[in-house]
Design a protein around this nucleic acid. Sequence first.
DNA 1: CACAGCCTGCGATGTGCGTCACATTGGCGG
DNA 2: CCGCCAATGTGACGCACATCGCAGGCTGTG
Lengths: 227, 227
Amino acid sequence: MDETNEVLSKAPLFEALDEDGAAALRSSITEVRLGRGQTLFSEGDEGDRLYVMLSGKVKLTRTSADGRENLLAVLGPGEMLGELSLFDPGPRTASAVAVTDAVLAGLGHDDLRPFIMQQPEVAVHLLKALATRLRRTNDVVADLVFTDVPGRVAKALLDLAERFGKESDDGLHVHHDLTQEELAQFVGASRETVNKALAEFALRGWLRIEAKAVVLLDIERLRRRAR
Amino acid sequence: MDETNEVLSKAPLFEALDEDGAAALRSSITEVRLGRGQTLFSEGDEGDRLYVMLSGKVKLTRTSADGRENLLAVLGPGEMLGELSLFDPGPRTASAVAVTDAVLAGLGHDDLRPFIMQQPEVAVHLLKALATRLRRTNDVVADLVFTDVPGRVAKALLDLAERFGKESDDGLHVHHDLTQEELAQFVGASRETVNKALAEFALRGWLRIEAKAVVLLDIERLRRRAR
DNA sequence: CACAGCCTGCGATGTGCGTCACATTGGCGG
DNA sequence: CCGCCAATGTGACGCACATCGCAGGCTGTG
């Protein structure tokens, strides 16, 4: 459980709480374990729980009327999901599915509310977290409008690298755990086009492709291609 | 000033405040008047003021590296803008420009903070408002990925109709105050393509085109075309 | 270890929409 | 009331990307 506390105390939701508060809030946590491919919640479900990721990766997806999928985000340890239905009650507007085995801490609306009322600092941190998310999402919109598919792929890789990258002597290892199909849904393009973009980057020596991972070799060039 | 109070009391920011609080907050407001085309703030500016629209319309835009523009939102009376730089300090990530003459109520970070700390209900309302915005923006992302340009035009018109539409005996009058160029930036398409989509809808008798406005005649068909 | 089911890699073909190049209209200041 | 510039309307053309089709490779499961 030490591991758990470590990650939690760094999550934006907890960082504003004093010792006592953090301890109290932790006591009302429900831990959830998911196997790869398992669903935490689905679009349309009722639910007012918020989750903080402890380990693993979870994807947030939306499904269009005709069944095609769009990947909104890939979340890792410390990140928060499910807040929208908590702050603005209503059915889930996205599904959450584990990309790898994952452990999450769940909190109900009623668990959290007293803390917000007593320690407004918590609310301020949450407002900041949501504001950041909104900015990010606005960036995504701009990219969809202005940037071509290879550019968006480069951007996505750099984004994943920042969050999941591990420096090593032969380059920046990004084990994203996504299939090319999922990567394609992430950037809003077809699987084939993404495949070709990746192949092109590899050919130019900007990266090396591995199973559900890439190794970034020339980040500067990738960054230039992204804008 | 009565008019002002009327609109303000309905804005989500104020709705949570008690009588005294609302009166106190109102006293720290700075009123801003903008003429059509005038800029309230620009991308990159420093600033931590939040604004509530009292009258008129303001557009939020982003500019890409090569100078092309993207219209994030058109805001009308009661709506809030500039919150992001207030909750998550940093330079503005969008510009705000008046589409019509407009009046806004401005509040600085320091004016608002005491109220959040003393009346957590205010923070709760703000969280809800941001959550709603985030959901909306996620919808926009999905539309850009899944829906073709005519579909997005139809969606945009229906959205504008909900917020600015006036029922009349010859159809639903939507005076959006946008040029077709701006409408195009709104849906992430070229001016020409938007023009052709509008012409097509008009030809089918779904709407009538007027100067900076449309009159919706067959909302049901438009709605079907949008999805 | 064999077979099935995913995942990846690529070429061929079609098309939505951006770009360019105009003509036309309409509002507004002189 | 005239001329000018911004806003609209429309066609021709090309390209980026989706779609389709198929051929390996990898993985794990009986």
